[in-house]
Design a protein around this nucleic acid. Structure first.
Lengths: 147, 147
DNA sequence: GCACTGACTTAGACGAGTCTAACTTCTTTA
DNA sequence: TAAAGAAGTTAGACTCGTCTAAGTCAGTGC
């Protein structure tokens, strides 16, 4: 790993995916994302953002002109949503299992990049199931067992 | 990410952790690991292994002399076991949720590196629980729901 | 006991991602 | 409306992980 490997599916490295997700989240609340906001959110310096934006632009994930603000393309938005979904599913699963939110979030964040669609789908269904009557019962039994 | 970040806990990058785990698994079956075996297992060329071994040696994870074979130190073995445990827990969890083994393995492999101890522990307990009578019954309910 | 072969290492290059320092562009405001 | 300051970019350096090509070591067979 760490060889900055690209996913087969969309050609993005983990790092680029993080930028994409950050932009998505900032757009969701602010409407549009700036370099500084992205840098702050990822705890990274501005020049790193500039480099990432150029690459994301080349890959058709963002529309971006120098000194102007950034917007996700349709394709970028779709992928970001996918990442976000993976993130939500796993952080929620971990919380349901009793992991504190902060830790669950961090772990979900590192999982979201390389998880297979099918695994994600199963985990998602399982989280949904855990919210039903049946599922709740199961979680109660699990908790009772571990005190 | 992808900046080849090191874990706070043990100073190892994801890539080095992969080498460590490979050595651990080879040692388990062959007693001792060679550069070529490690390279083959990780689908990497021999020079990459040499570099990794030097770093792992500097970090006290393997005992290694040029042109001689490799062995994990106590510390290296402990960490490798930890990685292996994370791997097993998640691949098993995914299989229990209905993910085919091959996919479950690949996903667990990418998760094992950055997962928090507590999350791992909870997941582990949960997998154990799913193997009980009660757990099995609820898994059946989950499966029935998704056909 | 020496040469050959296969295992291993070294050297050098490259891509990705990050940084700091210096420069450019934009915007705000007096 | 022009100057100051904020935002953004470029240049250049570094690390990590990978590769290929070329060199070194060690064990085997004769």
């Amino acid at each position: 790993m760490s060889r900055a490997r690209q996913s087969e599916a969309h050609q993005l490295t983990d790092a680029l995916e993080m930028y994409l997700k950050a932009i998505y989240e900032i757009e969701a609340t602010r409407g549009t994302a700036t370099v500084t906001e992205i840098a702050d959110r990822l705890a990274v310096k501005a020049p790193s953002v500039t480099v990432a934006l150029r690459r994301l632009s080349d890959l058709g994930m963002v529309r971006y002109e120098r000194y102007r603000s950034v917007r996700l393309t349709k394709r970028g938005k779709r992928l970001a949503r996918q990442l976000n979904r993976a993130y939500r599913v796993f952080s929620e699963l971990f919380v349901l299992l009793g992991v504190p939110e902060e830790i669950a979030d961090a772990d979900a964040c590192s999982i979201e990049h390389n998880i297979h669609d099918l695994t994600l789908r199963k985990a998602e269904l399982f989280v949904e199931f855990l919210r039903t009557e049946h599922g709740r019962a199961l979680l109660r039994a699990f908790e009772d067992k571990n005190d």
